[in-house]
């Protein structure tokens, strides 16, 4: 079985360098604008830092990907097309695209440019993935975080497109690219602006002992004294359904599929992606180092593979929320 490549997030140049230093095979980044799905203030790359990042990655034998994975609206495609042109001129190793119009532009204008299908494309089945392959010659597809292991295996059996899956990080409970909850509340969504539950719409309110977290006025959660208050991502709050208040959509947990690494390798996953361009260089360093160690350990001796206690602890220290989940890979999560 081939060893899966490790694909790590880089929200800025220090993160990119630390990902490369800690053993990432690929690093992925985006520009400082709405052309990518982590369009957060203070994050991302300009032309100079992208050039330096690519130089650094290549010097270490790593590859660099650029995410241009939002959807231009109306007649706005030019800006996204310029981002693709810039990436091709830079000599980037691949672009991650979501919009079909942009894929076609890239395939026609830059036939040598390698295309990866973004998770934002919502391609959950091999008919969809094979269609993008036939039409645009995609070289890899990133699966949305909705399939069980058996379903991932079925996709892999029925396509020649190498498949990348998420291994660790913040968890979208919704099919990526198919969620407009954020624009419903704030006017801005991952598809349209590259943001979810944007910080500018967040308001914290103290009422006596309780702390309210609001998103454009909507109460996402209310914390009693002593409770850990998390960022009010709108699907991860506590809501009232039928008189019962609970995490009705998703707990504030994050994905950790390390325990499934042997199965992911066995079914033929080509690459494992780490989420978190919005996280710190320290997060990137820790997660990259630990996953590198795990993938190498498994490659060296698959039979003896077990998640080491210090790996688990190291990941737990940087995880978002209080707990880990296997997510949709594990049927019960659904």
């Amino acid at each position: 079985m081939p060893i899966p490549e490790l694909v790590c997030p880089a929200g800025n140049l220090p993160s990119l360098k630390t990902a490369v230093d800690n053993g990432a095979d690929w690093v992925y980044m985006g520009l400082k604008d709405e052309t990518n799905a982590r369009n957060f203030a203070g994050l991302n790359f300009d032309a100079a830092s992208a050039r330096e990042g690519l130089r650094y990655a290549h010097a270490a034998g790593a590859k660099m990907l650029i995410a241009i994975n939002t959807f231009p609206q109306g007649q706005a495609s030019k800006r996204w097309q310029r981002a693709i042109d810039g990436a091709a001129d830079l000599g980037i190793d691949a672009v991650i695209l979501a919009d079909a119009g942009l894929m076609r532009y890239a395939a026609e204008r830059h036939p040598q440019l390698r295309l990866h299908l973004s998770v934002q494309t919502s391609a959950t089945n091999y008919e969809a993935i094979n269609f993008y392959q036939e039409r645009f010659g995609i070289s890899r597809a990133v699966l949305p975080r909705v399939l069980s292991l058996a379903q991932v295996a079925d996709v892999i059996r029925n396509t020649t497109v190498p498949i990348e899956v998420f291994g660790f990080g913040s968890l979208c409970v919704m099919v990526e690219g198919r969620c407009a909850l954020s624009s419903y509340v704030t006017g801005e969504s991952p598809n349209t602006r590259g943001v979810c539950s944007p910080a500018k719409a967040v308001r914290w309110e103290k009422h006596g002992d309780t702390l309210d977290a609001r998103l454009n006025g909507i109460l996402i959660d209310r914390y009693a004294p002593g409770e850990n208050a998390g960022y009010p991502t709108l699907c991860k709050g506590r809501f009232n359904v039928d008189g019962e208040t609970h995490y009705a959509i998703e707990d504030p947990s994050s994905l950790n599929a390390m325990a499934l690494l042997p199965e992911l390798v066995n079914i033929g996953v080509a690459a494992i992606k780490i989420e978190g361009r919005q996280r710190s260089p320290a997060y990137v360093a820790a997660v990259t180092r630990i996953w590198r160690a795990a993938i190498d350990a498994h490659a060296k001796n698959p039979q003896l593979f077990a998640v080491q206690a210090d790996w688990a602890n190291g990941l737990a220290r940087v995880a978002e929320g209080q707990q880990h989940t296997l997510g949709a890979y594990h049927r019960k999560w659904k």
């Binding site: 959807f71 109306g74 706005a76 495609s77 979501a98 919009d99 076609r104 919502s122």
Partner: peptide, 14 residues
């Protein structure tokens, strides 16, 4: 409605 046809180029492709 869920095919994400957000722009003219994608609409032309469809």
């Amino acid at each position: 409605p869920h095919l994400n046809i957000y722009n003219n180029e994608t609409l032309a492709w469809f």
